[in-house]
Every structure is written in structure tokens, then in C-alpha cells.
Design a protein around this nucleic acid. Structure first.
Lengths: 182, 182
DNA sequence: TCAACATGTTTGGGCTGCCAAACTTGTCGG
DNA sequence: CCGACAAGTTTGGCAGCCCAAACATGTTGA
């Protein structure tokens, strides 16, 4: 329990992460990004964006063009890409593996993208790559599909009885949890 | 226009979530919970806890015993259990499926526990239950293990080349150029 | 040329959540 | 009975982020 607030020492806050990824997205999409564009996309006021970006400029993550056009510094690009990659991976994990509807997967991924460790993100990537490689094996895909159905089976409420029961077991054997019902 | 700040309208904030689960943990562990215990456990001052708990009391989530002993209301228990369950499930997902070391899995789970939707949490539960059921079939466990190895293979840095490549593909094939930076 | 409009910035406020420090209580050993 | 200490509360500050509103600028169409 050393650091439950560890996310607070993240390179960028939740808010900053969204500012950066938004700028990058705007650049990709329309070739330029201004304060107003960012504000519109994030659904906040220009004033708020202006202030936040002032900070990000000072931190060297955002650069302002000669004519109020925004772009990202090398470091800014690095951070934005990392976060974006994490979002896509987590979203795919939830969607492809757990069978969660894409919109929900995206929302959840969006909420946690900047919190997931590099290690878990990388593991997600590795897992998905492996999954892709064996996706030609129909036996496996059948299994995965039935697991997905099972996963998405209870649209009712959380926590369902089976889930609750599993969670209790997981909690109990917390010490050295192995997945063996043996 | 899915709101990227959606987490802000959660029933409880990140901070509140930790206060609640801490009280529950303390009750389970030592049979009682006081302001000082919660403060110690969270690594913040008694003053902060005192103020926060005053709010949670007013919201009817926390109850104060006759002698400064804290406990949770019915609703408080509900919320705390839900969050705790989510943490355990996500942690297990990362550990058992992705092959992430338990400490890392716990840290990540801890950071996102209160953000994950009920639907994704339930799907995680369903998936793990299904996985458990077929864990006797060595064919699948072997497959899973090799996937885990693949997942955890690159302890190096994030994002690894394969992961990066996958992420790019995932991003590309996103149906609509992703109209919502969400 | 000039009013109208879009854009960017600044400022004052609010809310959450943390700390430090002063204060209040309650309990216990001498 | 009293001093000391642990526990709880209150208060003033600070930081992050958001809004609203007043301003400053720049572009444009009539």
C-alpha cells in the first residue's frame, strides 16, 4: 500500500494527457490545431485550454507556431503517442478478449489510458499479437468466442453471483494466488 | 460526445473510494477503524481524513460508532465491495491472462479500480470464470501460457516494435476516423 | 473604413483534496 | 489530581482544473 496516489507523480495529469492527445489528433486530422479547436474537442472553454497549454508550453511539451498554431515537441509527441497506444491496446483487450461492446471498451480505455503502467501495456500488446497469430486456429477462436459470450453473458448488473463468488475466492487466496482449482 | 471527464460524475471520487475500501479493510483486518488508522493506511494526515469522512458521513456512506469507531452504511458497504471486487478482477486479469507480475498488476488495478465500468468488470469476471472452468484442459493452459510468455516477453520498454505496429493497425482500422477524442 | 465575429488571454470564483499547525478531548500512569 | 500523549477537529494555504466574463487582437464583409 505504499503509494496509492502514485498516479499523481505521473509525467502528465489526466487533463494534460487529453490536451496532448487532442492536439496530436487534430494535427493528424485537419493539419493544424488551435486553442479553440482543442477546447471544442475537449468540451471545455478556451480560457481553460489557454491556461493549461501555457503550462504545457513551459514544460516544453507543446510548441506554438508563428501564427497561434499548436504542435508538440519531441517529448510531447512521445508522451501523446504512448498514451494513445495504451488506449488502443486496452480498448482492444476489452473488446477482443472480454467481448465488451466497442463504445464501452473505448470509454473505459479512455479513462484509464494514462494510468496503466508501461509493463501492463506492453504485456497487453504482446498478448494481442500472440492472439492474432493463432487466430487462424478455428478451435481457439471458437473457445475465445464462447469465453466472450460467457463474459458478456450477464448484461444485468455488477457484480453477478458467479463474478462475486470468484472475486471472493481471489481475495481470500490473495497471498500466492494461482489459478488452479485442483 | 462521450464525456472524457465522465469519471468526475462517479458515485465516489478516487479519494473517497480509497477511504471506503480502507475502512472496510481495517474492519476485516483488525476489527475496528478509526480516523488515525485510515490516515496511516492512506499515508495522509488525520486532518485530511477527518474532513473527507465528514463529507462521507453526511452522504450516508460512513457511520461513526459511539466511541469514534468507524463503519460503513449499507450503501457504503455496497460501494466499497464493488470497488474491491473490481480491483481483484482487474488484478487477476492482468496477472492470470496477461502474465503481468502480481505487484504491477495490483498497482495498476488499484489505479483504475474505481474507473472501470460495471459492464467491463462483469465481463472480466465472466471471462475468468470461463477460463477457470477449462483450466483442466491442458491444451488451453499450454496455449495460454505461451501467450503469457509472449505477453511478458519484452520487459524492455514500452512500446515495443511489435506492440507499436499492432497499435498502429488497430488505430487505422478504426471504422470512422475516430470522431471522438473522447 | 468599420462593425461584427472568431480567437486568444486574463482574472476572479468555485470545488476537491492535501498539508501544517493550533486546538479540543479523552485516557492513563504516577 | 495532573501532566503527557494519542486521537479528532478546525482553519488557513496551496495546487490542479474548470467556468464565466471582461478584454485584446485579428480578419472580414459591406
Amino acid at each position: 500500500m505504499s503509494d496509492w496516489r502514485e498516479f499523481e507523480q505521473n509525467p502528465v495529469s489526466h487533463s494534460a494527457a487529453h490536451h496532448l492527445t487532442t492536439i496530436q489528433w487534430l494535427l493528424d486530422d485537419q493539419g493544424y490545431a488551435r486553442v479553440s479547436d482543442v477546447a471544442r474537442h475537449l468540451g471545455i472553454t478556451r480560457g481553460s485550454v489557454s491556461v493549461t497549454l501555457k503550462g504545457l508550453r513551459q514544460r516544453g511539451l507543446v510548441v506554438e507556431d508563428d501564427h497561434k498554431h499548436l504542435s508538440l515537441s519531441e517529448e510531447g509527441v512521445q508522451i501523446a503517442r504512448g498514451i494513445r497506444t495504451k488506449r488502443v491496446l486496452i480498448q482492444a483487450l476489452f473488446r477482443e478478449v472480454l467481448g465488451v461492446p466497442d463504445e464501452v471498451a473505448e470509454q473505459d480505455a479512455c479513462k484509464v489510458e494514462h494510468l496503466i503502467s508501461d509493463q501492463t501495456a506492453e504485456a497487453t500488446g504482446g498478448f494481442l499479437v500472440g492472439l492474432e497469430k493463432i487466430s487462424s486456429d478455428s478451435q481457439w477462436t471458437h473457445l475465445l468466442e464462447s469465453l466472450q459470450r460467457l463474459a458478456a453473458a450477464t448484461p444485468a448488473s455488477f457484480p453477478g453471483s458467479a463474478t462475486q463468488e470468484l472475486a471472493l475466492r481471489l481475495e481470500k487466496k490473495d497471498p500466492q494466488g494461482e489459478d488452479q482449482p485442483s
